[in-house]
Computed example of a mutant assay.
Amino acid sequence: MASTQDRLDIIETCTRMAWYADHRECERLGEIFADATVLDYTSLNGGEPVTVSPEQIGSAWAQALGRFEATQHLITNHLVTVAGDAAVCTAAFQATHRKGTPLGASLWTLGGIYRFELTRTGETWKIAAVVMTATWGDGNQGLVG
């Protein structure tokens, strides 16, 4: 059985992903992502999952999120399963993106489920994979482009 500390550390690691993204602290993503991380955003963007480094994630997110005046990624209802040095954390998310625009709504909100796979190295949990499953959206998705 996983310790309470493991569960708290896993939840905090997953929460930091949203915090660093929203506060544009992309240089800190190396603290929470494994050297090779699988990102699967195919439910929203199509295509195939990609394997990338924390630096590649930071660069891509800085560019994509930098287009917005503000973002807020809320992650909640964490369900954590630990098996030795591997863990899975499934959680609900809501991500709101704000960008002033002369035409159309200035907000786009997306909701769904994140599935994080984590590995423990020493005392640290790192995200090795993220699967984002979008289940609903509202507002102006055109703000992304």
Rank of each mutant, 00 (worst) to 15 (best):
R24N: 07
R120L: 06
T71V: 05
A60G: 12
Q141T: 07
A134R: 14
Y41L: 07
T15E: 03
Y20Q: 03
E69K: 10
F68L: 08
G142I: 02
D22A: 01
N45W: 12
G30C: 03
D85A: 13
G139W: 03
F33P: 00
Q94A: 14
W61F: 13
C26T: 14
R120A: 05
Y114F: 14
Q56E: 15
L44V: 08
G47V: 04
I113F: 07
I75R: 08
Q5D: 14
M17C: 10
I32A: 07
T13F: 09
G100K: 13
L143Q: 07
A2T: 07
H78D: 05
R115D: 03
L103Y: 09
A86Q: 11
D35C: 02
A128Q: 13
Y41A: 06
V88M: 13
Q56S: 09
V80F: 00
A83W: 00
V50K: 13
L8E: 07
L143M: 04
V130S: 02
V50N: 05
L143F: 08
H97Y: 03
L107G: 00
D40R: 03
A86L: 10
E31W: 11
G142F: 00
G58N: 02
A86N: 09
L118V: 02
G47I: 09
T71K: 00
A87H: 05
T133A: 12
D35T: 15
A87C: 03
A91G: 02
C89D: 11
R7D: 03
E117V: 13
E55I: 12
T133W: 06
F68K: 01
L110T: 10
D22V: 03
E48L: 13
A36G: 13
D9W: 01
S3Y: 06
Q141H: 06
R7M: 15
Q141L: 12
G47P: 13
T76Q: 08
A87M: 02
Q141C: 02
V131I: 12
T133F: 05
E123Y: 01
R24Y: 04
D22H: 04
M1S: 09
Q56C: 08
A87Y: 01
A70F: 03
P49F: 10
D40S: 08
G145M: 11
E55T: 14
A83G: 11
K126G: 04
L118M: 04
G30H: 07
A62T: 12
N77E: 08
V38L: 15
G139Q: 12
A21S: 08
A60S: 15
G47N: 13
A134I: 14
A128P: 08
G142W: 04
E25F: 02
W19P: 02
A21I: 04
C14M: 04
T109L: 00
K126E: 09
C89G: 06
D9F: 01
Q56R: 10
R120H: 01
Y20W: 10
H73M: 01
V130E: 04
G122C: 04
E48N: 09
S53F: 09
E69R: 09
I57H: 10
E31Q: 06
R28D: 04
R98A: 10
L107A: 11
S106T: 15
A62S: 13
L143G: 03
A60L: 10
D138I: 05
G66W: 04
E48T: 14
K126M: 11
L79V: 14
A70I: 02
G30Y: 01
C89F: 02
